[in-house]
Simulated scan of single mutants.
Amino acid sequence: MSAITDRIDACKAEGRAALVGYLPVGYPDVDTSLEAMRVFVEAGCDIVEVGPPYSDPVLDGPVIQHAAAIALEGGVRVDDAFRAVSVVAQAGAVPVIMAYANLMLSRGWERFATDLVAAGGAGVITPDLTPDASPEWIAAARAAEVDTIFLTAPSTTRERMQLTADASRGFVYATSLMGVTGERASVGDAAADVVARTREAGAERVCVGLGVSTGRQAAEVARFADGVIVGSAFVKAMGDAGDLKALRVKVEELAAGVRGEA
């Protein structure tokens, strides 16, 4: 068990899914992004994904790429991500980091894991690492008691589903479609299918990301997933102006969705 599983299970005990919010650190500037993390928690996020901006993302769509570019131009650093983790933990939600492997490797697997724990973090989502390609990271994470969160997709084979479920801790991140992050008009049937197949492979907790942007969609996904992951819709709501009021309204809408109130 971990802080992540405890929080997801607590949400399940309330008869709902967890709301997982994502934001790049440093967008539109570091101080505003830290305040936005607090807004996430106050408005209803159970778990917060802290995103250290990266120059060559493989999962992020145009909205988050734009935000990351602004953050990088502003001089954001990985240390700022750990500051954000501390803010989330102090505000009362469970913080995780979503990081690309080069950022972690340059810091050192062990140091990255221990720095995360020191800041109050519980896990790391690694969109460009697969379990079989990351034994050093898994070993470092296990030693520091950090949850390793890997991804499944509609194209993932049964064998790799099982590999991912076995290596994941906290939850498995199920991508609901093939492509990058971004708002979609509908979630589609693939989301429920990939969750079902991930559970069949042995995953106890599965959260769904990519495409969720409205309370109605959140309510739909919450019926079959343990958590609903939202990123682009929150980044878009805040915008380059750092509109925290608009962000709060959007988070409250999605929080109502996972609670069946939308």
Results as ranks from 00 to 15, higher is better:
residue 99 A to L: 03
residue 96 V to L: 14
residue 107 R to Y: 05
residue 82 F to V: 07
residue 104 M to C: 08
residue 43 A to P: 00
residue 79 D to A: 07
residue 30 V to P: 04
residue 22 Y to T: 05
residue 5 T to F: 07
residue 32 T to E: 02
residue 91 A to L: 08
residue 46 D to P: 06
residue 87 V to K: 00
residue 36 A to P: 08
residue 90 Q to E: 15
residue 22 Y to E: 06
residue 59 L to E: 14
residue 105 L to T: 09
residue 85 V to W: 00
residue 39 V to Q: 13
residue 77 R to D: 01
residue 27 Y to F: 15
residue 100 Y to K: 02
residue 49 E to L: 09
residue 64 I to K: 01
residue 100 Y to M: 09
residue 21 G to D: 06
residue 21 G to C: 15
residue 107 R to G: 10
residue 94 V to R: 00
residue 46 D to A: 04
residue 47 I to T: 06
residue 103 L to I: 11
residue 95 P to W: 03
residue 103 L to E: 04
residue 107 R to W: 09
residue 45 C to S: 11
residue 23 L to E: 00
residue 42 E to W: 08
residue 37 M to E: 07
residue 16 R to E: 07
residue 16 R to L: 01
residue 106 S to M: 13
residue 52 P to S: 11
residue 60 D to M: 06
residue 71 A to H: 10
residue 14 E to R: 15
residue 32 T to Y: 04
residue 29 D to L: 11
residue 15 G to P: 04
residue 56 D to G: 04
residue 44 G to T: 05
residue 76 V to G: 02
residue 60 D to R: 04
residue 40 F to C: 00
residue 9 D to R: 08
residue 24 P to L: 00
residue 95 P to F: 08
residue 74 G to H: 10
residue 31 D to E: 15
residue 79 D to V: 00
residue 69 A to N: 14
residue 50 V to Y: 02
residue 87 V to G: 02
residue 13 A to H: 09
residue 32 T to H: 10
residue 30 V to L: 13
residue 66 H to W: 12
residue 18 A to F: 09
residue 62 P to L: 11
residue 80 D to N: 12
residue 93 A to R: 12
residue 42 E to C: 00
residue 66 H to L: 06
residue 52 P to R: 02
residue 56 D to F: 13
residue 27 Y to A: 03
residue 71 A to S: 14
